[in-house]
């Protein structure tokens, strides 16, 4: 039997999270096909055909797949699943939106956000905001799995495999796309950035995040935030790192004015190097930080900006 991976893309570019799912799928060991669903997305299929370990790319293009609405996309995937044992996707908002709908239609339980593959039917996944790791075994013929991409390296692009074009299934017309507001940032995306600088409640206002923007621009970093900063309205929700936001694992994570609630740690504690800047030396963030600096961020951040100017 084989594994089908739902590709993550924006109809133009394939996201690296897809390569990471390929690495997880390769550990399962079955043949790997990638499914590209979208509109005018042949360039994405071409990129997917380069990924190592992939045996075939299936592409289905239709106007009503443009925005990946859950109902038509899950109908299409269900129609293809007779040939596959396993369906996988990255645990992005798309994957989380679509895969459980497929799973329930197939009458199987989904395994969400796996962090390790033990064998074809056994996986590890974090529960309780990462404070415990559960080992789960499926008892059904088919498996539906989302992958926590920070737990797997990206598969390389050293392949050139065939692309098969399939027809769309009917649009169930249960919902209709109105609009999308994508924050067009020049900076890298949180989930793929090598360096992230995040602010918490200690930032005191949304305006003060411009101090972090300056550091981010110098380091080529993404800007994140704790739930407290999002709740306080400093920054939009897509900045949120943590149990209920994005899970990240960059080379360097700089936490500024973040106390380190378990819900935030859940989203960043697998970062390679963690820096914490906080004036409260008792803040739990220091327990996970490799380099903790007890200081007022309003002194420390301008100083950091200066110092970075000196070394570059």
């Amino acid at each position: 039997m084989a594994t089908l991976i739902l590709a993550e893309h924006d109809n133009i570019k394939l996201k690296e999270s897809t390569n990471k799912v390929v690495t997880a799928a390769n550990l399962i060991g079955d043949t790997i096909d990638i499914l590209v669903i979208g509109n005018n997305c042949m360039s994405v299929a071409t990129q997917a055909s380069k990924i190592t370990h992939v045996s075939k790319v299936i592409v289905v293009e239709e106007s009503y797949y443009q925005n990946m609405l859950a109902e038509p996309v899950s109908d299409l995937i269900v129609s293809l699943m007779k040939d596959y044992k396993t369906l996988m996707s990255p645990a992005t908002t798309n994957g989380k939106n679509i895969l459980p709908r497929v799973a329930a239609t197939l009458d199987v339980s989904q395994i969400s956000e796996i962090t390790a593959v033990i064998d074809k039917n056994t996986f590890e996944r974090p529960i309780y905001a990462g404070n415990a790791i559960a080992t789960i075994k499926t008892t059904t013929e088919k498996n539906v799995i989302t992958v926590r991409t920070t737990a797997f390296d990206a598969a390389t692009n050293e392949n050139n495999t065939e692309i098969e074009i399939l027809n769309a299934t009917a649009n169930p017309c249960l919902s209709e796309f109105i609009e999308e507001k994508i924050s067009g940032s020049e900076r890298p995306e949180l989930t793929s950035a090598k360096i992230i600088i995040s602010g918490g409640r200690g930032m005191q206002s949304g305006d003060n995040f411009s101090m972090l923007d300056k550091i981010a621009d110098k380091l080529g970093a993404a800007v994140g935030a704790s739930r407290a900063a999002v709740d306080a309205g400093f920054v939009p929700n897509e900045y949120q790192v943590g149990q209920t936001g994005k899970v990240v694992a960059p080379d360097l994570y700089i936490a500024v004015g973040i106390s380190g609630a378990i819900q935030h740690l859940a989203g960043m504690k697998d970062s390679k190097v963690i820096v914490a800047i906080n004036k409260d030396e008792e803040a739990p963030i220091f327990e996970v930080a490799d380099y903790g600096l007890v200081a007022d961020l309003f002194d420390a951040i301008p100083e950091l900006e200066n110092e970075l100017n000196n070394i570059k």
């Binding site: 404070n131 415990a132 790791i133 008892t139 903790g292």
Partner: peptide, 21 residues
């Protein structure tokens, strides 16, 4: 149930606590 929970473990602890001045 369609899933069996084989075991639940504590995650590996992160060694932190380093400070700079």
């Amino acid at each position: 149930p369609k899933l069996d929970v084989i075991k639940i473990e504590e995650p590996p602890k992160r060694q932190g606590g380093g400070k700079v001045e």
